[in-house]
Design a protein around this nucleic acid. Structure first.
Length: 103
DNA sequence: GGGGTGACCCAGT
DNA sequence: TACTGGGCCACCC
């Protein structure tokens, strides 16, 4: 029983992404877990798809996978932005141990 | 109506 | 953290 429409779920995800403080990042799973009850479904994969389709208006570079890996095709851009915000990077991936953030 | 795809995750090694 | 294998579910053809 979906309490919110898919569009509202997208808005929830984008809203949470905008809430991520500078210098920190959040994993897709963490976002899905934080909004799990908002729609009754929890799948990091759906969050990733949402970001791919509607992440153009939010700091998508602050969202990475659990390994600290960046979205394919935007790795360099994400790396530059994270570095500019002071996010601890470890080579080509984010240092989750220090950058991971939780609402 | 059926099948493949993907900005992923977890457990075990 | 890294690598492998298996699972999950909305979206697209």
């Amino acid at each position: 029983m979906a309490r919110v429409t898919p569009q509202e779920y997208v808005e929830e995800v984008l809203s949470l992404v905008e809430r991520i403080p500078e210098g920190h990042v959040m994993s897709y799973g963490a976002i899905a877990d934080a909004l799990a009850d908002a729609s009754g479904r929890n799948s990091a994969r759906q969050v990733g798809t949402i970001m791919a389709r509607h992440g153009g208006g939010v700091p998508w570079h602050r969202v990475v996978n659990s390994s600290g890996r960046m979205p394919p095709g935007h790795e360099q851009e994400a790396r530059e932005r994270l570095l500019s915000e002071g996010v601890p990077l470890k080579g080509e991936h984010v240092d989750m141990a220090r950058a991971s953030w939780r609402p």
